[in-house]
Write a protein that binds this DNA or RNA. Structure first.
Lengths: 342, 342
DNA sequence: TTGAAAGCGCTAACAT
DNA sequence: ATGTTAGCGCTTTCAA
């Protein structure tokens, strides 16, 4: 068996409770005793058993991270940052992939509950009500979601979408389609709302195509409808959908950005590498990951549940957007101001 | 406090041990009693506390997954598959990112040890000796590494590299460079060995450039040396390095595949989307992830440590490879057989 | 400053 | 088939 606190106690000639104190309440033990205990621990290679500790302290030192799809390139940088932040605070992290299924999400949180001090739900697919209910059972922080009473980190995708729309309008587009994501995704609503607002201000009407699965396949499947719609520009739910659309459109004989301008959302790793490089809304995922963990640890430590943090997004203009076919009147500044033009 | 086994016992009018048995040894309890217990548990929303259970069973129901860099697109699909497989077996998974640092890797495994039944080290950067030593402390399975006595899953990148070399040679390349990865990575050695063997067989000499960090930056940084080397084709350590090389080469005025053919390794998500689409060695990462978990669970369950599983790789020819400049004698079959030609 | 003892939630002999 | 008891590794009163 592994070496336990008892072994350390025996070797250092003190009682187990003293060993315990040497590790968790240094000031309660004589420096010399403590040194002796630590030396013995070192020598034996003793490591406190966190699970056993958790049993009496009710603090596991673990966090849960729940995401819809690890393989979606949006998530890994967020996971990496969150994991790093947790580790820096000496927390271990459980990770779980829900495969985009809200039931799995709920079940996962519940089954994890006893083993973690709290969990981060990244872009959850659950309803707000379900999330709020879960938050009763254990400290929760959500990313890109706004259930009442639950602290969270939001990446302000709405302002990014607004900038994207203004960019497209400035390029001269008037027929713009929105390739929307799953209804359960918070970003879907945010993007749609923001896009419609800008469109209204400019007296332009947006066609909404969707909902679509937030995957390449989702984008591919929508390509024909986009082509038939007569749109000259598309704002896609995310980069993956944008890629799917671009590739399928090419097969249908439409070139991007020549025939069709496409804007993604996420600014995932891929966006820089594709042909054409993707104009997209940059999401500060690493900050969000760190922020979510900070928020969670804060609410775990100080009991009180913190508020909501909102993070800026930005439009990154690359090569997938251009003036509409047969239009040469591109306005120079790609990212315009806030003024509306009726 | 959360509901415990005691609450269930009280409500269902039996002793705690009966409740325990109802959950873990159904056949030892009267069906009717069991039904009553289960009903009470259901009603109370009881969930066994896995950490407490672990204390007496010495089985945590948790697994560890240690990777060098979550954000490297090679890993997420593997993590996803491994996580899914674990969940299917009712195991929870801890994930940890080592940031490519072998010391962190070791520390992480140790700090996790008490909380997991075993761990999967994916493409570890530790030395074989260190890994073998760690395997004494807890069941370990490695992916893409072959430390003596430790079970593992290997993706046979050597055969993929061989096919890549044959592909380049068939295209007419004679000046081939190898952009090697970090020395600590198992794949580095495998690729180099396989590439050299093929080169020898064809009386061609390979230039080895590196080691390089396994990142886009690593590829970028090597681009000038590649250009100076006179190579007409490059076999890169992985897709990321290949991308970096391609992009930096473009800045240097070299086009791919016109001036330079580039082959990657991994067949990550990105490879299909880049311009040009990347010719690369496909790695069966999902299978590897599942296989590693299976192997680990097997060695956890049945004590015995299983052997090593080797998975096939394949060359995926896309658009980043072509005949060398000024050579039109491209051989048609992109993937050639095993014959050597002196 | 240290030791003794109880208990965290659960399982596992051992009785009955 | 079920209850009793001890104990997993650790923390935390309570005494001394």
């Amino acid at each position: 068996m592994a070496v336990t606190i008892r072994d350390v106690a025996r070797v250092s000639g003190v009682h187990v409770s003293t060993v315990s104190r040497a590790f968790t309440a240094a000031h309660l033990v004589n420096p010399e005793t403590r040194a002796r205990v630590l030396a013995a621990a070192e020598e034996l290679g003793y490591r406190p058993n966190r699970a056993a500790r958790a049993l009496s302290t009710r603090r596991t030192g673990n966090l849960g991270l729940i995401v819809a799809d690890i393989a979606n390139p949006f998530f890994p940088p967020l996971l990496k940052a969150a994991q790093a932040q947790a580790r820096a605070r000496d927390y271990h992290v459980f990770i779980a992939d829900t495969d985009e299924q809200s039931r799995v999400e709920e079940e996962l949180v519940r089954s994890m509950a006893k083993q973690v001090d709290g969990a981060v739900l990244v872009a959850p697919r659950l309803t707000n009500t379900a999330i709020t209910a879960l938050a009763e059972e254990l400290p929760l922080v959500v990313v890109n979601r706004r259930p009442p009473g639950v602290p969270g980190v939001l990446m302000d995708v709405g302002s990014g979408a607004r900038k994207a729309m203004e960019h497209l309008l400035a390029l001269g587009h008037r027929e713009i389609a929105l390739l929307s994501g799953p209804g359960r995704a918070w970003t879907s609503g945010e993007i749609e709302r923001a896009a419609n607002r800008v469109a209204d201000d400019h007296g332009v009407l947006i066609q909404r195509i969707g909902p679509n699965p937030p995957t390449e396949e989702g984008g591919r499947a929508a390509a024909e409808e986009v082509a038939a719609s007569g749109a000259t520009a598309v704002l896609a739910h995310n980069d993956l959908v944008a890629f799917g659309l671009i590739r399928r459109s090419a097969e249908l004989g439409l070139s991007v950005p020549g025939d069709l301008s496409v804007v993604g959302v996420d600014d995932s790793h891929l966006a820089r590498y594709t042909a054409p490089a993707l104009t997209t809304v940059h999401m500060p995922v690493a900050e969000a990951g760190r922020g979510a963990v900070d928020l969670l640890l804060q609410s775990v430590t100080s009991g009180g549940s913190a508020g909501t943090v909102s993070l800026e997004t930005a439009l990154v203009v690359r090569d997938s957007t251009a003036p509409p076919p047969g239009n040469t009147s591109a306005a120079p500044p790609p990212v315009t101001g806030d003024d509306a033009a009726g």
